[in-house]
Computed example of a mutant assay.
Amino acid sequence: MDIIKPYTRFVFRGLGQIMLQGNAITGLLFALGIAIHSLGLAGAAILGAVIGTLWAKLCKYPVSAITAGLYGFNSALVAIGVSYFYSFSTLTLGLLVCGGIFATWIMHVMQTYQLKPYTFPFVLTLWLIFAVVPQHVMDLPLVTLGTSNINGVLQGFGQVMFQSNSWTGLVFILAIFVNNAKHAIWAVAAATLAMIVAFLLHWSNTEIVAGMYSYNAVLAALAVLLLTPQKWLWVLVILLSILFTKLMFVLLLPALTFPFILAIWCVAWGIHFYPNQQINRSTDQH
């Protein structure tokens, strides 16, 4: 029993890490939020987190990363994505398991070279699966709370895990709040800002209300809070995520969470590059 409990905690931390929250209770609430919309996808999320965490343990990846749930979240996203885009079959199960293992390996490689993986292993894995196996997008119904504005913000949270459901988004916000109230407030602000910007630019109202411009902004906002206290960079990373999302829509590419990754990589590179420039200028002056 003592062995099972810690492992279960690591698995749910993996779910929490999808939104950069290394908290098992947050991860459990994420699973419950998904279950509100789809029990099957909730089961897939947990299975994916188990696969990634177990594979990391079998391969003897760094214990600290395993206990923090860092090898569970990309695998969980792959499992949700595969279950969302493909009908259940033996092939789907194979894709889920192999995809989860591959994403976990990519995560380990990127960490080994001190890169910033975020959800890139999930994006790369799903892109490869899309390239090999023709996809069928499930038509899941929207659930509104009465006004499109509130709906757009809440679904911005749900769409992080392919959940076009406002109640699921509300539970996700609560889950983040349980771990860090500040993160929850900033994430809601990010989703709202993304929706307002998209509205002012006269982009598709259907996409705005469905949270398609907000979910990458939510992830970008949470990630940049861990990088820097500079609030103007928080605004910049949100605007970049919106821009990259729209660009991928125009190019008819599967965006997934890649706009968030591109935005945060740009800001992280800028944070790293600017101090180096300052140091070089100081050296030149002396």
Rank of each mutant, 00 (worst) to 15 (best):
I3A: 15
I4A: 06
T8I: 14
L15V: 01
G22E: 12
N23F: 06
T26D: 03
T26A: 07
L28E: 01
F30P: 03
F30L: 03
A35I: 05
H37Y: 08
H37W: 04
G40L: 06
A42F: 00
A44H: 05
A45M: 02
T53M: 07
W55C: 15
A56V: 13
A56D: 03
L58A: 09
L58F: 09
Y61P: 03
I66C: 09
G69K: 08
Y71N: 09
I80L: 01
I80C: 04
S83E: 04
Y84R: 04
F85R: 14
Y86W: 08
S87I: 10
F88A: 07
L91P: 00
T92V: 14
L93E: 03
C98Q: 05
F102K: 08
A103R: 03
T104V: 06
W105V: 04
I106S: 02
M110A: 04
M110W: 11
Q111L: 09
Q114C: 14
L115W: 11
Y118T: 09
P121T: 06
T125C: 05
L126N: 02
V132S: 15
Q135L: 05
V137S: 09
V137Q: 12
D139M: 07
T144M: 03
G152E: 02
Q155M: 13
G156R: 02
V160C: 00
M161R: 09
Q163C: 03
S166L: 02
S166T: 04
W167P: 01
T168C: 00
T168R: 00
L170Q: 05
V171K: 00
A175V: 01
V178L: 01
W186P: 05
A187Q: 11
A187L: 13
A194P: 00
A198H: 14
L201D: 08
L201P: 13
S204N: 15
T206E: 09
T206H: 06
A210H: 14
M212K: 15
S214P: 04
V218L: 01
L219P: 04
A220F: 08
A221R: 15
L222I: 00
V224S: 10
L225A: 09
L226F: 10
T228K: 00
T228P: 02
T228L: 13
L233C: 08
L233H: 12
I238P: 00
L239S: 06
F249T: 10
L252N: 15
L253Y: 14
L253F: 13
T257D: 08
F258L: 14
F258Q: 12
F260R: 11
F260N: 09
F260H: 03
F260S: 06
A263V: 07
A263R: 11
I264H: 14
W265K: 11
C266T: 12
G270C: 13
H272D: 15
N276R: 15
N280L: 13
S282D: 07
D284A: 11
Q285C: 13
